[in-house]
Write a protein that binds this DNA or RNA. Structure first.
Lengths: 368, 368
DNA sequence: CCAGCTTGCTAATGCGTATAAGTAATGCGC
DNA sequence: GCGCATTACTTATACGCATTAGCAAGCTGG
């Protein structure tokens, strides 16, 4: 007889159907013959100390009931009730799975996924850019991430104002890539300074005494850091630094001529270090000039690259330099985010790069 | 001190900080001098038709108040109240971000992400292999997906019993790949039958009158479908089918010899069609036999492949055949899942493959 | 034998939002 | 001038879970 049950799920879901109640704690409770509160206590204390005031017998009944119903907590409800839901957001401003794998954050995500899984978090992918749907890509779109316990942001075009708001609200946010302009925003990044310094010290240890850095005319942190590390490396090796050691130019391919190269060598320079950029301009320029000048490396001079070679030069001899540990960066970002979520102090934001011996450096000529 | 204030947000968040109450609808309401419900009505009707029963004057007051407080809705609360969370799960039984992009579900995910974003869904990534954290990778791990409104499954080794359970519970589930053995399980798959038929008809239109399919000894649906389509294509073109048209063998590379090939040709066969498998065995066998026999394609005979060539043969001339539209398959899977979640009828599960003209077929010899 | 503790559970409440149901106040037809 | 619809709201409630106050029973000790 279908009484006007006051029961569950009443007037809602007018047309759409969230039907098929997946099991709730209340149903688990009914099956186990306890109250909903007990279920909550048992399930949330599962990982915690056993100190909860629930008898082992009841606990077991509840666990069995939950398992047999396939109970899974509703993340929204958990969040709302001010607990955690064990979800970490990943918000990228380009498609997370782009057609062009090269220019993607894919390598980072490998590390992100692994670390998140290891820590018992699941990932929620929020996609920013491709919101081709009905949604205006307004700032509210960013707000979705608050469903998760915290969020990782990837990409250059992050709307700073919105992020600032989240940080101010105390929502755990980590940016992948250095981001110091926003006070209080946590980030992780690669330690270009140390890595660049190491490359220089490697060259010094091979016997090079005069080394020149070729870089583009660019003030991105990534460039600045490399130059800084380069100069630090020189100093650590007791070699002369100063403005002469850095060749900064707008268009390396045009300005690094074979003549220029020869003149450096005549001045006693035996090794060259190229900044890494999107285009690999400095690296290409140095290689090109050496080839044109009929100079071989590492025979006549040594070349190093402060980063990884562009993919179209993958077949060529490996440049001495370093690799950005993208997997580890992703993992580090997750660690930091997890720390923030847990209210712990954030850890070291810099991740060391991996030195790559390569095949483009050797002892300077005349010093075998 | 520290009276036991009954106020808002009390004993919660022991260590972590959900801090700094951002404004709630209730505060907006107070400022605007209306009830919380009115705020909700105004804000949620914003995008909808203007037909809501709120005067323009009140509406404006509410909007102003919301703006001045910087109100942003809490997604957790929205989703809780709406009884759905706008999350779609993606469960794959290999790492979702595998290091080796080639052998992954990556191409599907491209389409999945795009379509999900277009429909306003976010994705939750579950990984079978990496067994979310502390969880034993037991069958219960599968239950995690119930957190989402529905879930997409990728991979061959899906535990059918568990899936069955979910389907029976009414949890929306879609499998990527044909899966007819489980009554009621929704799936999307590529239409190998039509695509194979089309390849055969293409050959027929070039003038071929006797065509042979070379396939491996395998009863996977993917193989069966291709054979079915092949035979359908023959029939549609009015060509002889029957068992002679299909060469089924355990090891094509051993059994498809140059002699065998010649004997077929002597019998009047002018075109050969290879099944696609993981290894590409049939295709390699046909190419190898032709090469060894000194026969050229498409000069002396025509070759077609019912699928895409293995990646190591990517540099070779493109085989005539078809490509599985992986992006579209991913998108179709999301569409179907969204339909299930919304309680609508599922749509067409088959996605058409793209015919690829290629360079390995031509008119039969003697018919220019 | 009862105050006072501990153990093991339940009842009640709140998180922020959406929405059904209710209530005045007004307009309209007859 | 009354019934009834419409407009413009407000009140009440539910969503699923966490949390805390409370309650009953069993135990301890003086």
């Amino acid at each position: 007889m279908e009484q006007p049950r006051k029961g569950p799920r009443r007037g809602r879901t007018p047309a759409a159907a969230g039907r098929t109640s997946r099991p709730r704690q209340a149903e688990v409770a009914r099956l186990a013959g306890v109250s909903q509160a007990t279920v909550s206590l048992v399930l949330s204390a599962k990982a915690k100390a056993q100190g909860s005031a629930i008898s082992d017998e009841t606990r077991q009944r509840v666990l069995d009931a939950a398992r047999s119903l396939g109970y899974v907590p509703d993340p929204a409800a958990q969040r709302l009730a001010a607990a955690r839901n064990n979800l970490l957001g990943v918000y990228s401003f380009t498609a997370t799975f782009p057609t062009d794998v090269e220019h993607s954050y894919y390598p980072f995500l490998v590390g992100v996924e692994r670390e998140a899984a290891a820590r018992g978090y699941d990932l929620v992918l929020f996609t920013g850019s491709s919101s081709g749907g009905a949604k205006a890509a307004g700032p509210e779109a960013l707000n979705r991430v608050r469903l998760a316990d915290g969020c990782l942001f990837l990409g250059r075009h992050v709307p700073i104002a919105e992020l600032k708001r989240m940080v101010a609200d105390g929502f755990p946010v980590v940016h992948l890539g250095r981001r110091e302009e926003l006070e209080g925003l946590s980030w992780v990044g690669a330690d270009y300074v140390s890595a660049s310094s190491e490359v220089v010290r490697h060259l010094a240890s091979l016997g090079h005494r005069r080394i020149v850095l070729v870089r583009e005319d660019d003030d991105a942190p990534a460039s600045t850091d490399r130059q800084l590390g380069f100069l630090e490396g020189l100093e650590a090796a007791g070699l002369p630094g100063g403005s002469e050691a850095v060749f900064r130019c707008a268009d390396p391919r045009r300005e690094v001529t074979p003549e220029r190269l020869r003149s450096w060598i005549d001045e006693g320079v035996t090794a060259f270090v190229a900044e890494e950029t999107d285009t690999g301009g400095a690296w290409r320029a140095l290689r090109g000039a050496a080839d044109e000048a009929g100079l071989s490396y590492p025979g006549d001079l040594s070349l190093a690259l402060l980063g990884s070679p562009p993919s179209d030069l993958a077949g060529d001899p490996q440049p001495t330099g370093f690799d950005v540990p993208r997997h580890q960066l992703g993992a580090a970002a997750v660690r930091m985010l997890a720390a923030l979520v847990a209210g712990e102090a954030a850890e070291e934001p810099l991740v060391a790069c991996a030195f790559r011996a390569g095949a483009t450096t050797g002892s300077p000529p005349g010093r075998p």
